[in-house]
Design a protein around this nucleic acid. Sequence first.
DNA 1: GGCTTGATGCAAATTGATTGCATTCGCGAG
DNA 2: CTCGCGAATGCAATCAATTTGCATCAAGCC
Lengths: 155, 155
Amino acid sequence: MKHASAHAPLPSPPSLAALQDLLRSSGLRSTAARLAVLGYLHETHTPNSHAQMFDALGDRGFDRATIYRNLMDLAEAGIVRRTDLGDHVWRFELVRGVAGSRHTEEHPHFVCLDCGGGVCLPGLSLELHGIGGAPRSVGENKITVQLKGLCDNCS
Amino acid sequence: MKHASAHAPLPSPPSLAALQDLLRSSGLRSTAARLAVLGYLHETHTPNSHAQMFDALGDRGFDRATIYRNLMDLAEAGIVRRTDLGDHVWRFELVRGVAGSRHTEEHPHFVCLDCGGGVCLPGLSLELHGIGGAPRSVGENKITVQLKGLCDNCS
DNA sequence: GGCTTGATGCAAATTGATTGCATTCGCGAG
DNA sequence: CTCGCGAATGCAATCAATTTGCATCAAGCC
C-alpha cells in the first residue's frame, strides 16, 4: 500500500479530554483500553489490522480480545471504519475523529488479485451509468469503491 | 445476492472428454476429483464457496483438502476465478469453461457493509476519471469493481 | 510395462476472528 | 461521597475458513 499523495503536516496528538468527549458523545464509556485504541488510530493514518493494533498496544497490558471488542464497538459507533483490502484481513481506520484530527478521506482502493497488495487512489473519481436495480446508496453516492486487477508488478 | 437479469436456457452438461480437454490444455492432469469439481462449477452458475463445494461433492468420496487444492489449482490456471463477496469467504466461479458453457460474465458487485449481502450489478457501467497514478490495469480496463455501502434493508 | 512426478487422503496446523464467564470498573443517581 | 447497575475487561477457549505435511496412489509419458 503506497500513499503517493502529499499530506498536510500531522496535527498534534488529541487531548485526553477530546478523546473522552468523542467516546461519551458516541454513547461509549471512556475506558483506558478505548482511549488507547482510539489514540493509536489518531496517530496512525493507515488502516490497521487487529493484529497490528495488538502488537502496538499489547505490551501496555491491553488484552487482545478487549482490543478486538473495542475496534468493533468503535466501528459500530461510526467512529471507525472497518475496511477490507482484499486479503481477508479486516483493517480499521478513523472515520470521525477528534476535531482537528486527520483521518482517512473516503477514496477508491485498488487491490491486486495476485499479490493482494493495495493501492489508495485518492485522485480517482467515477461516473456511474445504469444504476437502476442497484441499492439506493449507490444512487445517493454513499458507497466506497474497490477496484481489483493485477498491479504493475504482477501483470 | 439476487440475479435479476434474464438468463438464456442452460446448456446441457459438458461431456467428460470436453472437461478432460480443458484440464489438459491448461496444464493440469485430468483426475476424478478435478473432473468432479469442474463439472460442478459448470452446473452451478453462482460463485460457490469451498465449503459448499465440499457439501456437494463430499459424499462422493472427495476429500475436503483435495477439493480446496483443486479449486486453487483451477484458479491459478485461469479456469476459475476466486471472488470475494465481502463476507471474507472465498468463492469460486467459472471464468473459462468448456466451449458452449455458460459462465459468469464480469460485472460490478455491490456488498453491504452491514449485513454482508452481495448484489450483482450487471447493468452498471463506470467511467473513470483521474486514473493517473493508478496501476496500468485500471487504465486498460482489466479490473473488476466492487461497490460497498448499505443495502436497502440495512440503510 | 516402468518410471516420474503430480494428486490424493488423512490428519493436523494455521490464521483471523469471536465468544463465555467471572471479575472489575465507569458513571449516574441519591 | 457512596452505592448499585450494567458495561467493559482479562483470561481462556472456541470457531470458521483456510492451508499444509506426509505417505500413498495414480496420470501420463517413454
